[in-house]
């Protein structure tokens, strides 16, 4: 359900990009998808395939998903670590003052169209 909402937002954005660049069709979309973005790639693809058929510009568009590993940086010791393995607490020094560096992306990277 959540993925369907994400796909609707993607289609909105992509239709605007198509208009701005005078594209009649978009054939391929590549998406950077963070590991902790809360979006499941398989569900996203299912929703994508269902939803794009109902549009003109994106009717036959392929979605390429590029996974982005989640990395957190610790403000106390300055080191980085894998977010999935260790969560919010720094495994190096045990501090909880940490910030997600990457891994939350749901970012449209490039598109192909004509």
């Amino acid at each position: 359900m959540h993925e369907l909402g994400i796909v609707f937002h993607m289609i909105d954005t992509l239709e605007k990009v198509a208009r701005a660049n005078e594209l009649a069709t978009i054939s391929r979309v590549s998406l950077n998808l963070g590991e902790v973005s809360g979006v499941l790639p398989d569900y996203l693809l299912d929703c994508w395939n269902w939803a794009v058929r109902r549009t003109e510009v994106l009717h036959d568009a392929t979605l390429d998903i590029r996974p982005i590993a989640a990395v957190t940086v610790c403000n106390a010791c300055g080191r980085t670590y894998g977010t999935i393995e260790h969560g919010k607490t720094c495994p190096h020094c045990g501090d909880a003052d940490t910030v997600l560096l990457r891994g939350n992306e749901i970012e449209i990277d490039t598109i192909e169209g004509c």
Binding site: H9, M10, L23, A24, E105, I106, I108, I111, C114
Partner: peptide, 18 residues
Amino acid sequence: MDKIRIIEVKEDVRANND
């Protein structure tokens, strides 16, 4: 047929909503 163009978008899907 028109030539296929590649366009760099680099925009988060949530940016539109924000």
